[in-house]
């Protein structure tokens, strides 16, 4: 049962020279077989394995590109009316057709993407910052301060979002910043709770104690060690916040609160198309499709990241 390799070895074995002492330089007792890989390289590899998440990521990237560059290269603008071709069906000139004022729907969807995506990402970013700082602070210092601050969070959370929206609109009027503000007032609460729980469990870890013994200050321990080590759940929570913000914005626009016409957001477009739903149902399809696909893609990305970044789900 000896294979060729073993045969060869058998021959070599006869060579007495092989029984000479092995030099120390020929030994490698601190050998590490695992390739050097960073946390994110590893996570990326895992993320790529999830097909739905990858498709979602490609879709969102495409959407972003269209939102940024689409309107620049389009021959039409979002508010340019062409009364000669109103309610046109999709054609080569107008890939998604035109609305009742003869405005190109394709360019309006791309323009709407600008608003919807920027509301989504901006609010997620603001919530991320507030949530991480607030939650990190509560979790790290704990005690009475934490108790008071967390009760405050519960009060904020117990008021319905719609109430905030109406209040903000009353004070600041209907514009994109009011929408953003309204979403962010209570949006960070989930993130704060998540980060607080993470920091609380991580601060007893020996590497956090080690940093303390080295003389590291509280902010260094909190942000360099604890927050960095909670990065997985933080990223996942953030990606899930984007679609919910986009949805809120669209919903508000649909019911008529939010940005004002002739600016286009997916919600306002859907709202406008509502009147024509019997005659021109196709006009309704485009903004709704955009909302659905974007939210779906972002949710897929979120789930993909959740799996890729969670060490428990790996071998």
């Amino acid at each position: 049962m000896e294979n060729q390799f073993d045969k060869k070895l058998q021959d070599i074995e006869a060579d007495d020279a092989l029984f000479e002492k092995l030099e120390d330089s020929e030994k490698d007792s601190e050998f590490i077989a695992v390739e050097a890989k960073t946390y994110f390289q590893d996570a990326w590899k895992n993320f790529k394995k999830n097909k739905l998440a990858t498709i979602g990521l490609i879709f969102i990237c495409l959407m972003l590109l269209l939102a940024v560059f689409g309107p620049i290269f389009s021959p039409y603008t979002y508010d340019q009316q062409d009364l000669t071709s109103r309610n046109a069906l999709p054609s080569l000139q107008h890939p998604f057709g035109t609305d009742k004022f003869g405005r190109d729907i394709f360019v309006r969807v791309m323009y709407g993407a600008r608003i919807s995506l920027s509301v989504g990402f901006a609010s997620a970013f603001i919530n991320l910052i507030i949530g991480v700082v607030y939650g990190g602070f509560c979790g790290y210092f704990g005690g009475k301060l934490d108790m008071v601050l967390m009760r405050l969070v519960e009060i904020i959370y117990s008021v319905p979002t719609l109430l905030y929206v109406i209040l903000v609109m009353l004070i600041f009027g209907s514009n994109i910043f009011s929408v953003l503000l309204a979403i962010c007032i209570s949006g960070w609460v989930g993130m704060a709770r998540q980060v607080r729980a993470q920091v609380m469990s991580l601060k007893e870890q020996e590497y956090a104690l080690a940093a303390k013994v080295m003389g590291a200050g509280d902010s260094r321990i909190l942000f360099k060690h604890l927050v960095v080590n909670s990065i997985g759940p933080i990223i996942v929570t953030t990606t899930h916040m984007v679609p919910s913000a986009i949805f809120t914005e669209s919903f508000l626009a649909f019911v008529g609160i939010g940005i004002s016409i002739p600016q286009a957001s997916w919600g306002t477009m859907a709202s406008e198309a509502r009147g024509l739903i019997m005659n021109q149902p196709i006009q309704m399809v485009w903004p709704v499709l955009a909302i659905c696909l974007t939210i779906l893609s972002l949710n897929f990305i979120g789930d993909g990241l959740n799996e890729a970044l969670d060490p428990r789900k790996r071998v």
């Binding site: 870890q205 020996e206 590497y207 104690l209 080590n229």
Partner: peptide
């Protein structure tokens, strides 16, 4: 006055490279 912890798996920050870990006290001080 320094401290060596029991569990070598928990006492090194998993998100830092060896270089960053050893440099940390130098940076702090």
């Amino acid at each position: 006055i320094q401290y060596i912890f029991q569990d070598p798996y928990a006492s090194l920050d998993p998100r830092m490279t060896v270089g960053e870990i050893i440099k940390e006290p130098m940076k702090i001080h």
